[in-house]
Structure formats: C-alpha cells, structure tokens
Design a protein around this nucleic acid. Structure first.
Lengths: 198, 198
DNA sequence: GTCAATACGGCACGTGCCGTGCCGTTTGCT
DNA sequence: AGCAAACGGCACGGCACGTGCCGTATTGAC
C-alpha cells in the first residue's frame, strides 16, 4: 500500500526537474510548457501531470531542490546575522538558472492560489520562521527596540529586496543590503547632535 | 496626417477598457483573453490589437485611467506627507476592481519586458519622481539623515507594501503603514536610555 | 512462479486562445 | 465625390492545454 504511490519515482522526477531547469534557461519561464518539459525529459505528459498540477509547481520544486538548508547563525550580533542571511539569500537568487526563475514564480502565484499556498508553506515559511525566531531572541537581549513586531521587521528588511527584484530596477547587491540594514537600524531621522547644530 | 492615427478612437477605446475592467472582475486576470474582451466590448479583435500589444498593456491602461493625479503635499512634516501619500496609494489599490488587477499586472511584467518598461515609465516613475523630490527637500531641511539615498528610502518604505501584496500574506492597512513609518524613522535599535538601564 | 496492479511512453483527441489574414461596410477627411 | 483608413465579422493555422486509450514493462503479493 505504501509503495503504491512510489513505484518508480526518483529517476523520472529528477529527469523532469533537470529538463525544466535546462529549458527554462533556454526559452524562459513564459515559453516553458509541460509539453516541452515532458519531451525534453523523454517522458510522457502523464508522468508530469501525475506529480505536479502545473508548470509553476514544477518550477517551485526546482527551486526547492537548489536551496540547501540555510542555517541561521547566532553570533550574538543581530545585524551581522541578518546581513549574512540576506546575503546568502541574494547569492542563491543570483545563480544563473535561478535568477530569472524566481521572479517568474512570484509572478505566477499572483494568478494561482494553490501555487501561492505551496510557495508560502514550503519556501517562504521556513525562511521567515527562522528569521522571526532570531529577531525575538535579539529583542529579548535588548538588541532590538522592544516595541517592534518581528513580522513588521521582516517586511521592512525583505520587502526592499523584493521591490528591487519585482517592481523597480535598481542596484541589488551586497552594498544595497548594507545600506539597507544601516538605515533600518539607525532610522531615517537625522542624528540628534546634527539637530542641535541646526 | 495627424488625424490619420485617430479616426474614431475614443468610443472604442473606452468600450474596450470598460469591458476589460468588467471581465476582469468576473473571471479574473488569468482567464482574461483579448478574444473575450473584444467580444464583450462588441468590437473586432483587430480593434484591440491595433491599440495594445497584449492584454497586460490593456490592463495597464485600465489602471492608469483609474489613477487620478496624486498631488504631493508639502505640509513641512515629511513623515505626515509620506503617510498621506502611502495611504492614498493603498486606498487606490483597495478599490474593488483594482485590488486584484494590480498584483496580476506586477506578475505579468516578470515575463514581458516591454510591458515592464511601460509600467515603470508610465505608472511607477511619476510616483517615485514625486517621492524622490519630496525626500530631497526634507533632507535639505534637516528632517532626514543626510547620508541616506532617496532611492534607498523609497525601497525601504514601499518595498514592505509590495511585499505584503505580492509575497507574504499579512495585514495591509493604515495601521501597518503607521508602524512601518514609525520603525523606519526611529530605527530598529533600542532607544539609547533603555540601553543604559540594562 | 504466477498474477494483478500500477506506472510508463506514445499517440490522438477536443478545446481555447493566439495573432493574422480577408471581406464588405462605414466613416471622415480632402 | 472620392479615397483612405478603421471597423465588425469570419476563418485560418498554430500551439499548448488536459485527458483519454493503447500496449508494454516493472513491481509487489500470493
């Protein structure tokens, strides 16, 4: 019974994921089709549909496969830890095959509720759970303003990255992450002494 | 010569935009088709293709039509002005027909470079230009830390809004905007006195 | 060792929409 | 009056969808 659903899975599954990654790099996400993926993988269309409900779901699995566990460091310095985490994520999304696929997937979840749920549960949640826990720890230690909501901080720090990827063109590099963290932690208000000077 | 390209434009153009907005509310962006739009508008498909290159372009025009000029207030208080601006934008995107269309359009630009350019030039740029100018003014007046890049501030403030709309579910209301501005301007660091207390 | 169940590749089907032709008509400028 | 352009209607080939059916190969149960 238990083996019923997995008679000959692994080889074909891997073949489909590999074919998807290759095809995506060649023709782009928009022109990707399940028909094309199946042909490239040397597999029948049913074999794909049996495993995934849509091409977006296949791509989500491609991305998940390329995401090794991003352990959350705790060096004691919350800013340094966040910087390390954000840079690691940025590096992952800069990888050749992935960089174009990720925005396309985010685009796809705007029109596919089931895919959106899967993306949030399997990709986003693991990341934000770790970040939230680390932020709470920092708040307890007095390294963070006691009246900020961790989920607000997550949006404040990661939102700008998504903004640069999805909405507006602009620098998306380590320097951006650095100045982002600087501004977020120090605040946009002018330093107190400069106020006295004026 | 000048009239060559506009013999009988306005009525049909409006009819198509209206039909697009109606159909989008009924079937959603994903199931929207130019064929369906033309039929709903009582118009030949050529009439649509003559004006727009894709359904995304039609939707962009629908959104532009519903966006009255958002004047940029200058009350002297940069935080109050930003809050007013962000709330106005939020209100616009909360309108029944628009709320679902906007994320879908952002999704579409991930796979259509021409549409992305049009969106950024005709929708995004007018907004960010105003915001950037207002931020520079505030910086000159000493209401803003002198070493922050206005474009970084824009990403810092608007990124979290897009993050909530496009990526992660979560509160998206006036209270969120308020706490966002509070955190961004005050910074995430604990207040100086609380450090001395510990 | 036999047998039933399942996954598989291959193929074909109907459907929907794409983008583009062509046709005959209407409209508005000259 | 005459002409050029836009128009509605229709049809076309093309593509990918999602789903059947076929015959084959593999696997676990008995």
């Amino acid at each position: 019974m238990a083996t019923v659903s997995s008679r000959r899975d692994p080889d074909r599954t891997e073949a489909v994921l590999r074919a998807t990654l290759e095809l995506a790099q060649e023709v782009g996400y928009a022109k990707l089709s399940i028909e094309g993926i199946a042909a490239r993988a040397g597999v029948g269309k049913h074999t794909v549909y049996r495993r995934w409900p849509s091409k977006g779901a296949v791509v989500l699995d491609v991305l998940l496969a390329s995401k090794q566990q991003l352990g959350y460091p705790d060096t004691g310095d919350i800013v340094a830890d966040l910087r390390a985490q954000m840079r690691a994520g940025m590096e992952l999304l800069a990888r050749p095959g992935i960089s174009a696929l990720y925005p396309a997937l985010i685009g796809e979840i705007q029109n596919d509720a089931a895919l959106a749920a899967a993306f949030r549960e399997r990709w986003l949640k693991p990341v934000t759970d770790g970040t939230r826990a680390r932020l709470l720890l920092a708040r307890e230690r007095g390294q963070l303003s006691p009246d900020v909501d961790p989920d607000m901080v997550i949006a404040l720090l990661y939102g700008p990255l998504y903004y640069r990827i999805l909405v507006a063109p602009g620098p998306y590099d380590a320097a951006f992450v650095d100045s982002l963290l600087d501004a977020a932690f120090a605040g946009l208000k002018p330093p107190a002494d400069s106020r006295h000077v004026s």
